[in-house]
Amino acid sequence: MSSNPTTQLPYRKKSLWMNAWKRLTKNRMAMLGLGIISLFIFAAIFADYIAPYRYDEQHLDKIFQFPNKEFLLGTDQNGRDILSRIIYGARISLQVGFISVAISAVLGCGLGSVAGYYGDKIDNVIMRVMDVLMAIPNVLLAIVIATTLGPGLQNLMIAVGISSVPSFARLIRASILSVKGQEFVEAARLVGCSDARIIFRHLIPNVLAPIIVQITLSMALSILAASTLSFLGLGIQPPIPEWGAMLSSGRMYIMDYWYLVTFPGIAIAIIILALNLLGDGLRDALDPRMKK
């Protein structure tokens, strides 16, 4: 039997992902999460079309209105429609989520793979730095970075992004270390696979799975961190409708107008819940070991 290993591999790789996808779709909770996230993405992209008003449109004669037919979730202290602000807020939150996780993932995976692949001193140094970053509670680190950089959406994304770098670095380093020594790598080398082929066809699929899960869960954390920072006054400046900032500005009026803080908070909770459900579902689907 002299079948070419390279012609067999793509087939195997596809069926691995297809299997995982099948498992994922069977998971009702994960599909619910995926559905909700898609909804938010849709809202973010088409906000201009589905939001009844613009997010900074003030109706100064109609401030502090409780939810009614004209303003489905009420108006805030400047007469702005809360529902519209929440819809536009999805755009902000998702942006922050994607970009800060992209920063964390790229930096983290870069550092982690260098550490894992070369080992020894480089590994030590990089991991010590990661330990230092992890020794500072997440929120505090983000606050420190945000304080230095100043307010603004961009700086918010950088601050949140950096504080998640250690998780990715550790994850990919652990994956690479465990895969590096495994026998199938030896076997592939014996059959004659080149280094690059080994990395792409064998190492990456194994390493990719936990990364995908981590990306999903990190997005949830990032959105939460972003709203936390905005709530504390670091980050987004008005009138940008970030959900955390909405809570912060609405806070002083909760005695009479509780809805100012309730709805934005629910929005945050829902998207985080959806991301967590999807992340858990991905973890179960991509883990080849049977859970039952």
Partner: peptide
Amino acid sequence: LISLAMPSFWLGL
């Protein structure tokens, strides 16, 4: 799942 999703500042409020 719900508790982990709720931001603490929102829950407090």
